[in-house]
Amino acid sequence: YETDHQDYCEVCQQGGEIILCDTCPRAYHLVCLDPELEKAPEGKWSCPHCEKE
């Protein structure tokens, strides 16, 4: 399936195990989030940028 999400972390610009925001195209490593997450959230997730909106 096709997605318009970026394939690198918004914070460190590296690829790998990233989680995708359900609201925007941004993607993040769990450890690059502040506060960092230990595991990917279940269900819908909005990144810090979208949470501020």
Rank of each mutant, 00 (worst) to 15 (best):
V31G: 12
P25G: 10
A40S: 11
R26D: 04
E51Y: 05
E42I: 10
V11I: 08
L33F: 10
W45N: 06
P35M: 13
E42R: 08
C21H: 01
E36A: 09
A40F: 15
L30F: 09
C9Q: 00
P48D: 02
V11E: 15
H5S: 15
K52I: 00
C9S: 01
H5I: 12
P35E: 10
D4S: 08
I19F: 11
D7G: 05
K44P: 05
L20F: 12
T23F: 13
D22K: 06
C47T: 03
D34N: 03
A40N: 14
E10G: 10
P48N: 10
E17Y: 11
Y8K: 09
C21R: 00
G15M: 13
D22A: 13
H49P: 10
Q13G: 14
E17F: 05
K52L: 05
C12S: 00
E38H: 05
E51L: 07
K39V: 06
D7F: 01
D4V: 13
C47I: 00
L20K: 12
I18T: 11
D22E: 08
Q14V: 07
G15N: 13
C50P: 02
A40G: 06
G43W: 05
E10I: 14
P48E: 10
H5K: 11
S46H: 06
E53T: 02
Q14L: 10
C21G: 01
Q13I: 05
Q13N: 11
I18C: 02
C47H: 05
L37E: 02
E36K: 12
Q13K: 05
C47Y: 00
E10S: 07
E17C: 08
Q14F: 04
D7I: 04
G15D: 06
C9K: 01
E2G: 12
P41L: 07
Q13L: 07
P35H: 02
T23V: 05
D22H: 08
T23Q: 07
Y8D: 06
Y8T: 08
D4W: 10
D4L: 12
S46K: 04
E38Q: 10
D22L: 09
T23G: 04
C50I: 03
R26I: 09
G15R: 13
G43T: 14
A27E: 02
C47K: 02
L20I: 08
Y1T: 15
P41S: 13
E2V: 02
H49G: 12
D7A: 09
E53W: 02
L33A: 08
Y1Q: 15
H5V: 15
Q14A: 08
V31S: 07
C32M: 00
K39T: 10
A27L: 05
E2P: 06
G16A: 09
E38Y: 07
V31L: 08
D34E: 15
D22R: 09
Y8R: 14
W45V: 10
